[in-house]
Write a protein that binds this DNA or RNA. Structure first.
Length: 195
DNA sequence: CGACCGATTGACT
DNA sequence: GTCAATCGGTCGG
C-alpha cells in the first residue's frame, strides 16, 4: 500500500478532515506494525479558530502546526494525555485535524498491552475510541511531535472509501469556544467512534 | 511568580 | 451522573 502524497494534506483542514475518514493510520515501532482505520476527526482552522491552539499565534509549543501540511502535531494536556493531529494546508496557516478515534486493523495485541488491558480482553472500543486512548495504544508521545507523515515511522495509506451518506457531522467535543461550528466528522454507526 | 484551566480519561456515587 | 488526577501553557500582577 502506498503512502498518501503531500498533496493530500496540502488542502484546507475541513476538506482533509472528511477525506481522512476511512484512511489507515500506520505506526511502526521497530519491526512492530500497528494500524487502524480513522473513524472520527475534528478540524481546527488555525489562527482564525478560537478553539485552536494556533489562534494566539505561533509559539514554541504549537510551532509544528504552522509547518507545511503532512506532519504530526502531538500535544500534552490535562497533565496526563497526548493528542495527535495531522497538520494540513500550506505553511503558516496553522490548520490541523485532530484524530479522535480509530478502528484497530493490525497489532491489536500490542495495543492492548500498551493500554494496560489484560491479554484476555476482547477487542473492546475503549482501546482506541478517544484521542488520548489512541495515542497510548499507538505509543505516540512527545517524541513523535513533528514527525513527517511521508516518513516511515507514522504515515497514512488509503482504505475503504467512506460514502458521503455515511459521514456524520456534529459540534466539536470538549471545547468552550466555537462550539457551534460543526467541524467534527465521524463514520455513522461505527462502534469505535467515541461516545 | 501564582492562579487558572484545558481539543481527557477512568473511577466512583 | 459527578469528580479527581496532574502538569505545562497562558495570562495577570
Amino acid at each position: 500500500m502506498k503512502k498518501l502524497p503531500r498533496s493530500f494534506y496540502a488542502r484546507p483542514a475541513l476538506l482533509v478532515a472528511k477525506d481522512l475518514l476511512g484512511k489507515i493510520l500506520v505506526r511502526k515501532i521497530g519491526k512492530t506494525i500497528l494500524s487502524g482505520e480513522i473513524v472520527e476527526v475534528e478540524a481546527y482552522l488555525g489562527v482564525k479558530d478560537p478553539a485552536s491552539h494556533a489562534y494566539r499565534g505561533r509559539t514554541k509549543r504549537n510551532e509544528v502546526m504552522f509547518r507545511e501540511g503532512g506532519c504530526l502535531y502531538v500535544y500534552f494536556t490535562y497533565g496526563m494525555h497526548f493528542c495527535a493531529n495531522i497538520v494540513t494546508g500550506r505553511q503558516g496557516t496553522g490548520e490541523a485535524v485532530l484524530i479522535r478515534a480509530l478502528e484497530p486493523v493490525t497489532g491489536i495485541e500490542v495495543m492492548k498491552r500498551k493500554r494496560g488491558f489484560p491479554k484476555s480482553a476482547g477487542a473492546t472500543p475503549t482501546l482506541t475510541n478517544g484521542p488520548g486512548k489512541l495515542c497510548q495504544a499507538l505509543g505516540i508521545g512527545r517524541k513523535e511531535n513533528g514527525i513527517d507523515l511521508l516518513g516511515d515511522e507514522i504515515y497514512l495509506i488509503a482504505g475503504e472509501p467512506i460514502p458521503k451518506s455515511s459521514i456524520g457531522t456534529s459540534g466539536r467535543v470538549g471545547i468552550s469556544q466555537g462550539k457551534e461550528k460543526k467541524w467534527r466528522f465521524f463514520v455513522k454507526g461505527n462502534k469505535w467512534v467515541s461516545g
